[in-house]
Each structure stands twice: as C-alpha cells, then as structure tokens.
Design a protein around this nucleic acid. Structure first.
Length: 460
RNA sequence: GGCCCCAUCGUCUAGCGGUUAGGACACCGCCCUUUCACGGCGGUGACGGGGGUUCGAGUCCCCCUGGGGUCGCCA
C-alpha cells in the first residue's frame, strides 16, 4: 500500500508551492488506492499558530483535497518522541551535549573566520566526565564519522552525501522538545509512510533523516524531491507574486480545478495534454514523470485555464460563485442568456461579475473614446427610428431584438455598425461587450428604451 | 565560500542516439463578427558555451558558464 503525507508547519497560510506538493502526494496516494495523511509539524513552540492550521485546512477544503483519518499534530505526540530519544540515549546512539548556545555561536564564528564550514565539533560525543553544572543539555544523534550516505531519489536519481558533511545534529532541544529532522523520520516511519514527496529544499534533510531511520532500525520510504516553483521573473517566490495565500486565488475569482490543473502542469506532464480533470490527474499521475528543474509560475496560463473551466461550468454553479462577488442572479429570469453570453469571455469569476454588473446596471458614464468613435452622422435619427420600432413590439428573446435591429438596417439602408455602435454606447457606455441582442433581451424592452433615451438626452 | 541539485522557444513542456526539434500559454497576422472576446486557420520563436564518445548527440561523458538549494536548540 502506498501511504503519502503532506506535512506543513503552521507558520503561515498555504501557498501554491505547498499546495502543489500536497496535490502530488494526494494524487499518488489516491491513484494507488492508498492513504494520504495530513500532519501538522508544530514542534516549534513559539512560531506556530492555530490560525495557520485553520488556513491550511480551509485551503484543502476549497480545492477539494481530502485526507485519511484525523489530522495529526506533532505537538500531541511529544511523549512518543521522548521514548525514542531515550531509546537512542540508552543504546549509545545519541548523547547529551552540554555546549551552550553561546559557545556554539563562538565556535561557528571561529570556523567561519578560518573559512571552514561551520559545524559542531562533536566534543561531547564520547564524553565520560562529569557534566558541567547548571547547564541543560541538548541531545545529539551520532552521525556516521566516515563513508557516504546514499539514497535513491525518485526524481533526482542517486544522491550521495559524504558523512563529513554532516554533524551530530540536535534531536532534542535543551528544554526537551524534539526537533524537526528527528520527528519527521519517526512519524513517517510510525505512520507507515511509503512515499515522501516534498520540496527539494528538503533534499539536504534527507540524509539526516536517514541517520534517524537507521539508528532506530526503521524501514526507509521512497523519496521524491520536487523542484521549486519560481515567480514570473524566474526568481524565488515572494508574497507579492505566487507565494500569496491559496485562498487569495479564490478571492481573485479563480476556480479550484483551474488552480489544480495549473499546478499539476508545473513540473509534471503527460505528453502534450494540458487539460486535466482531477480524475484524469489521478489516473495519470506518476512522480517519475516529475521534472528535475524548477519551473516559473506563469499567470496568463492560469488565466487561460480558468477561462476554460468557467466556459465549461454549468450556469447554476456560476450563479453561486457570483454571489461572493456581489452579483445575485438566482431569481433573475434572464440569467441563462446572461451567463451563456458572459462565460465565454471571462477569465475570472470576478471579471464575470464585473461584466454582469455592466449589463445589469445602466452606464453611469459614457466612455469618451466610444462617444467619439460611435456617435457619428445620423446616429440620433437612427436611434430614434430604432426606438419607434421597438415601441411597437413585444420582444423577449435575443432573436426578437435582433429582428428589430435588422429591420432598421434594412429600412434605413445602413450597415449594421451604424446602429450597433451607438446602441452599444447607449446600453453599455462602451465600444465593446457581448452581443447587443443578448444584452437587450437580458435587460428587457423598457430598460433598453430608457438607456437609449438617456443617451439621446445626454449632452454629447 | 564548501557541499548538493538543475539547464529545449519569453513561459510551461514533449523528446528518452537518427525528428523539417512537437504541443500549450503569451505575442503577431488572417477569418468569423455590429464591437470586444470566444472560436478557426497561419506565423515569429528554443536545444547556454566548449571539448569528447559515436557513422550519427537536444539526447551519453567531461569542463566552463549561468541559475537554485543548503550549511540553526526553524521547519
């Protein structure tokens, strides 16, 4: 059975890098009928917050990723870690180190000055004397003194780290709390995690965790280190670009399936295919197809995908989505025409909402450029003629309104543009927008007349 | 700086020793059209550089260059 996990530390909201990692793990577990565990890495007393955990859970819910069992909190598992620390101590695989933080800092400084790589000098590794008074020791694990730590990464291939690059890292702080590299290995082993898919910023943690696995005689999982996501400039993600809260994408009007589709294609591919439903991803995903190199985030592709999913959304879903953006269509009897006309053109739900408002609400002002371009020659006469025609009829459907326009065109012997352009300005205040017949059918005969009269009355 | 990782159009990528180096986004043009989009058609555009190996290299090896990661009692 394949067991994967996503193990964020609750120090902030979830951003797209984390979401993609979560998605990859979820996909791999679900594809194999395995388990996907969500584990909160909150061993650091001070830096975690309940809000951050909530934010992560909220993001999971929005994009529709589920997880098996309860959320695991490392802060609730301290006694387990303590037992394993004691075990290593008892077996002589770990030891107390009485060096203070200040001493350590001084040592590091000196090493740096000499151009050496800063690292603990193992002075207490085989210490048998009397420990110094009044110092609360940390616990360090005995890392191998020589040789290589070699592991097979499912993405990067064989990774070799020389033992001399590693030191006896701390597994328990002086206050007794365990540290990251220790608890990760313990939990992954105890929870039966078989496949660890994570960001490649963890690559260097892997040999440390392997030391823990080996000291405890626990079986190693498979590791997959996924390259980073870069911003549009190819630099590290910052809060200004892609590193914003995943939920921000919702507020911007993105659909979760578009975001997921976008993220799955960042670093992973399946031939030439671009559009993947969650089902398809699940069927096709394999970490062996993940790229080795980092990929830059590309907003216009996300927008294209979002537009695609909006176009293919049923109207009733759009109605619901629109409510978050202040557009309430549930009781509007022309909502099908409106949505069918607009969903072809919107890149985000927010744009969809803005366009809907532009139709539903009479223009507050006319775009000066449109005025200049569209209102030429006989435009007043043409609009008045159109109005007169409209008064005689009871149009309801777009086709009805279209016929009125056509009659004007035919009888006045003019091109469609001669009526279309001024009419568009009257109805929308602008030169662009959806089909006019659709617009008129949506707002109805009376409102159409009102808007045309407004333009006629206006001082333009 | 040490160590590790990476390198195909602007971007995401296909390629797995023999291809006119393919697709997608973006961009440009044409068509559709009352406009703007959508859609359709077409176009510009890439193997970072240098050495090898081979009949043949984007594909394998080495070096350089350029990016990135990491060197905490953070995770």
């Amino acid at each position: 059975m394949v067991v994967t996990r996503f193990a964020p530390s609750p120090t902030g909201y979830l951003h797209i890098g984390g979401l993609r990692t979560a998605l990859f793990n979820w996909l791999w577990a679900r594809k194999n009928g395995g388990k996907f565990i969500l584990r909160i890495e909150d061993t650091d007393l001070a830096r975690n917050s309940q809000e951050a955990t909530q934010a992560i859970l909220e993001a999971f819910e929005w994009v529709g990723l589920d997880y098996d069992g309860e959320v695991a909190y490392q802060s609730k598992r301290f006694d387990i870690y303590k037992r394993y620390i004691q075990k290593l101590l008892d077996e002589g695989k770990a030891y107390y180190c009485y060096m203070t933080k200040e001493e350590l800092d001084r040592l590091r400084e000196e090493q740096m000055k000499r151009g050496e790589r800063p690292r603990y000098d193992r002075r207490y590794r085989d210490f048998t004397g009397t420990p110094p008074e009044g110092i609360k020791p940390v616990v360090r694990i005995k890392a191998p003194l020589e040789g290589d730590i070699v592991f097979e990464d499912g993405i990067k291939g064989t990774i070799t780290i020389k033992a001399e690059e590693l030191d006896d890292f701390i597994i328990a702080r002086s206050d007794g709390t365990p540290t990251y590299n220790f608890v990760v290995a313990i939990d992954d082993a105890l929870m039966g995690v078989t496949d660890v898919i994570r960001g490649d910023d963890h690559l260097y943690n892997t040999p440390k965790q392997i030391i823990v696995y080996e000291a405890l005689g626990l079986p190693l999982p498979r590791f997959y280190h996924v390259p980073m996501i870069l911003n549009e400039q190819g630099k590290k993600l910052s809060k200004r670009d892609g590193a914003m809260d995943v939920m921000e994408y919702k507020r911007l009007g993105y659909l979760p399936e578009a975001l997921l589709n976008f993220l799955v294609r960042l670093g992973w591919s399946h031939g030439d295919q671009e559009i993947f439903s969650l089902e398809e991803m699940r069927k096709l995903f394999d970490p062996k197809d993940i790229n080795k190199s980092a990929s830059a985030y590309n907003l216009s592709k996300l927008q294209w995908l979002n537009a695609h999913y909006i176009k293919n959304s049923p109207n009733e879903r759009l109605v619901k989505l629109l409510e978050d953006f202040g557009v309430f269509l549930a009781d509007h009897d022309r909502k099908e025409i409106l949505l069918d006309a607009l969903k072809e053109r919107a890149k985000t739900i927010k744009e969809l909402a803005d366009m809907a408002k532009e139709i539903l609400e009479a223009p507050k002002a006319y775009d000066p450029k449109a005025l200049k371009k569209a209102l030429k020659g006989e435009w007043r006469e043409i609009l008045r003629y159109f109005l007169a025609k409209l008064q005689e009829k009871e149009p309801h459907l777009p086709i009805d309104f279209h016929e009125v326009m056509e009659e004007v065109v035919k009888e006045k012997q003019i091109s469609f543009g001669k009526i279309g352009q001024p009419l568009r300005v009257a109805l929308l205040g602008r030169m662009s927008g959806p089909d006019l017949a659709d617009v008129m059918a949506i707002i109805g005969k009376e409102e159409t007349i009102r808007r045309v009269e407004n333009l006629l009355k206006a001082d333009v």
